[in-house]
Computed example of a mutant assay.
Amino acid sequence: MLRTITLGSCVSVQGLVVGNTPDGKLMVRVDDKTFVGYPVTVGRA
């Protein structure tokens, strides 16, 4: 599943989910790199 995570206040990464961490972060893979960050929530108007 494709998900977007935030790595900092201004940096986001979108990739395939490869796992979760106990503190609520997601691990996503982009090419050969894995990033860990908080998932972006969808705001509804």
Results as ranks from 00 to 15, higher is better:
residue 3 R to S: 05
residue 33 K to H: 13
residue 34 T to V: 15
residue 33 K to Y: 09
residue 43 G to W: 11
residue 8 G to I: 08
residue 18 V to G: 02
residue 34 T to S: 03
residue 7 L to I: 07
residue 22 P to W: 04
residue 23 D to G: 02
residue 35 F to I: 03
residue 15 G to Q: 03
residue 43 G to H: 13
residue 26 L to K: 03
residue 8 G to V: 10
residue 18 V to P: 04
residue 8 G to A: 11
residue 27 M to I: 03
residue 38 Y to W: 06
residue 33 K to S: 13
residue 30 V to A: 04
residue 33 K to D: 15
residue 31 D to P: 04
residue 36 V to G: 08
residue 6 T to M: 09
residue 21 T to S: 12
residue 11 V to K: 15
residue 43 G to Q: 14
residue 31 D to L: 11
residue 18 V to R: 02
residue 11 V to C: 14
residue 39 P to F: 02
residue 13 V to S: 11
residue 9 S to P: 14
residue 32 D to Y: 09
residue 32 D to W: 10
residue 36 V to K: 15
residue 20 N to W: 06
residue 5 I to C: 01
residue 25 K to Q: 05
residue 28 V to H: 05
residue 34 T to C: 07
residue 27 M to N: 05
residue 7 L to C: 10
residue 23 D to Y: 06
residue 38 Y to T: 14
residue 19 G to K: 05
residue 27 M to H: 02
residue 21 T to L: 07
residue 9 S to W: 12
residue 6 T to S: 09
residue 38 Y to A: 09
residue 36 V to L: 12
residue 42 V to M: 06
residue 20 N to M: 01
residue 16 L to M: 01
residue 28 V to T: 01
residue 20 N to R: 02
residue 1 M to D: 11
residue 22 P to R: 05
residue 41 T to P: 08
residue 12 S to L: 13
residue 15 G to V: 08
residue 19 G to V: 06
residue 9 S to M: 13
residue 40 V to W: 01
residue 23 D to F: 00
residue 26 L to P: 05
residue 42 V to F: 08
residue 38 Y to D: 13
residue 1 M to Y: 05
residue 25 K to D: 02
residue 45 A to P: 08
residue 25 K to T: 08
residue 12 S to I: 14
residue 41 T to I: 13
residue 43 G to L: 14
residue 11 V to A: 14
residue 23 D to H: 07
residue 44 R to G: 12
residue 13 V to R: 13
residue 37 G to F: 00
residue 27 M to G: 00
residue 11 V to P: 09
residue 11 V to Y: 11
residue 28 V to N: 00
residue 1 M to Q: 08
residue 28 V to P: 04
residue 6 T to C: 06
residue 44 R to D: 14
residue 36 V to F: 11
residue 14 Q to Y: 02
residue 45 A to D: 10
residue 13 V to H: 10
residue 3 R to K: 11
residue 19 G to E: 10
residue 19 G to Q: 06
residue 13 V to D: 09
residue 22 P to A: 01
residue 5 I to R: 04
residue 12 S to W: 12
residue 28 V to S: 01
residue 24 G to S: 01
residue 25 K to A: 04
residue 38 Y to S: 12
residue 29 R to L: 08
residue 26 L to W: 00
residue 36 V to W: 12
residue 22 P to C: 03
residue 26 L to Q: 04
residue 11 V to T: 15
residue 42 V to G: 06
